[in-house]
Design a protein around this nucleic acid. Structure first.
Lengths: 341, 341
DNA sequence: ACGTCGATTGGAAGCGCTTCCAGCGGCACC
DNA sequence: GGTGCCGCTGGAAGCGCTTCCAATCGACGT
């Protein structure tokens, strides 16, 4: 394995110059640079990340913490980040907490401190005060994706607006009896986002002077399966709503499947709207608020790169909103029998 | 940030002894070890991964290469690996190729060589000869997940058996007209696995003396959406099969949705069987061959740990088969109208 | 009582790279 | 012809840890 010494020797310069030529920092004559680059290529030189990191304090490696990669939103975000980083020559270290508090703590307290990371992207993480302190204590840029987080930059969509948009669409179609399937806010430390989506729902309902029935506020766990089961219960009741706003497309799909299994036609008997832009939505003709998670991840990565750039401009902690797109497909329509005025 | 020097000073030993005590290699008196550990805790010492890596050549970091993390199988595998590694204090660097050949090459030729990785887990990757050479040239343990790969350890299920099992189930129920939805083998460099599943299908059919109609060998792209579209074509034809074996559960779900939309009842009019154990299968009552990808990932990680262990036993390149489970649910039944004998 | 041996230990040499700093020639300018 | 800069360069000092090696010290065997 060729080292920078070999390159320097072959190029007939010192290691200092070789290093400067290869990294691009510091002045190097065109001639010398040329020789170094040629030598480097000839020897198939690959710099040691460890040595470079140790010497410079920068490791070209950023950490991403997610509850789990096997969920749509997280996977997409990771993908977005990964692609952005790959283009820039950065590595990505993945830490999954599995939603377990122990794991999360372990990751935040042990792993992140090893000075191997230039920056960290917590995705949809709910942190305790102490955990946040840990996260910030490494003194590196942090950009969250998903929920807003005090003290750090974050990237995400306007959850409240998304909820209001979806709900408003249903109301605009003439629905009065609207249920909302959301994810629990407390027990499992799922993202607080859904809470905000839900508040968008509630506000929209309030603005329209519509009642939010407690029994029509269904708490599910973000999976299609669970939403299916709960929707069956909801829709089997004689007093069923004419429309459902699900906090995610997967849950919306669960609702549609439940409706079909109960013999209800969508959208004739039931309108369903979701949030996400999940591929599944296409087959189900799902009307939804698309949120482009890859874009969010990529944007977070880009922000980080900027903060890690020469200027070191550590952007002030702000929340950046990524636009959504409302896609109307065939799962929503005016109610056949309008609810009680 | 406390360094090992501080720890050593506080414990009144040399850095050499402190290092030995902390890492567990080399002899240290119980007394000294105790003092070092205490000092380390007191100072909240966290060793620098870069320094340790540079000095020792081991980085406690393993690389995982996947085509993309936003697909069910890959996400689950990554999850399995991640959990296994987290428990053992290893970091995980994720590289996604996005299925793009350029990216894959870049990852294999640039990223992997930075000597930051102790080992590599390529997941379901199809490599060119040259790429494989690169992969092996880093001189680190490699354990693949998914397809078999010449020259390295691999972990995976018996694809051929899975295909034969699913097909055999349909045949056993009395089906004679069976279609297979599989993923393309060449154009997109998807895993070669499906090819093997397909050969399991073909062998099972051959053994039963059944004909495999070319038009019933449908090539899809592993997504529900595409399988849905192609299934609609397949099932709309007057000469439709009575059963479909889909190479993945997502595709199977697509087929079921297509069938329903065409007014076909599952399983009365059409039996469908898949492979994977995808959560989606539960809602659809899908009969399937479960393959537990998390377990495969975890197993690969465990194998790696073993190879990285003190013995450095670089296991000979063998393929380890993880058992599958056949789950019969409600998507398969005897055909109402048996096909031509 | 003396050599031997094993368990511990600290000194010190790196691991491969970055970067501070002083030094160098050449240029424009006074 | 000086003087002051400026662009480039190489020497060398680390970054924080691991590990080889020689040294130390009882304990033990004879």
């Amino acid at each position: 394995m060729a080292s920078i010494k070999d390159v320097a020797a072959l190029a007939q310069v010192s290691t200092a110059t070789a290093s400067r030529a290869l990294s691009g920092r510091g002045p190097v004559s065109p001639d010398a640079r040329e020789r170094v680059l040629r030598a480097s290529a000839q020897l198939k030189f690959v710099p040691s990340a460890n040595a470079a990191g140790l010497a410079s304090g920068r490791s070209r490696n950023i950490g991403v913490i997610v509850p789990g990669v096997d969920r749509w939103f997280f996977a997409k975000v990771v993908r977005g980040i990964s692609e952005e980083l790959l283009d820039r020559g950065y590595d990505l270290s993945l830490y999954t907490t599995g939603g377990s508090h122990d794991h999360q703590e372990k990751v935040l307290e042990d792993y992140l401190l090893r000075q191997r990371l230039d920056a960290v992207v917590p995705v949809a993480l709910e942190l305790t005060r102490r955990e946040r302190a840990h996260l910030l204590s490494i003194g590196r840029p942090v950009v969250g994706v998903g929920g807003a987080m005090a003290g750090v930059c974050t990237v995400g969509i306007d959850q409240e607006a998304a909820g209001a948009l979806a709900t408003g669409h249903l109301i605009g179609l003439g629905h009065r009896s609207i249920a909302h399937i959301t994810a629990g806010t407390d027990p499992n430390r799922d993202f607080a986002l859904t809470g905000t989506r839900r508040s968008g729902f509630e506000h929209a309902m309030a603005r329209a002077g519509l009642e939010v029935r407690p029994s029509w506020l269904v708490v599910s766990d973000f999976t299609l399966n669970d939403a299916y089961a709960r929707s069956k219960l909801l829709l089997a009741s004689p007093e069923r709503p004419t429309a459902v706003f699900a906090a995610s497309d997967e849950m919306a799909a669960g609702t549609i499947l439940a409706a079909r299994d109960l013999g209800l036609r969508v959208p004739a008997d039931l309108s369903v709207v979701g949030v996400d832009g999940h591929e599944l939505g296409e087959v189900f003709g799902l009307t939804t608020v698309q949120q482009f998670p890859e874009r969010q991840g990529a944007r977070a990565a880009a922000l980080l790169m900027q903060q890690l750039g020469p200027e070191g401009a550590v952007g002030d902690p702000h929340h950046e909103t990524v636009p959504t797109e409302f896609v109307v497909r065939s799962s929503t329509a005016a109610p056949v029998r309008p609810g009680p005025a």
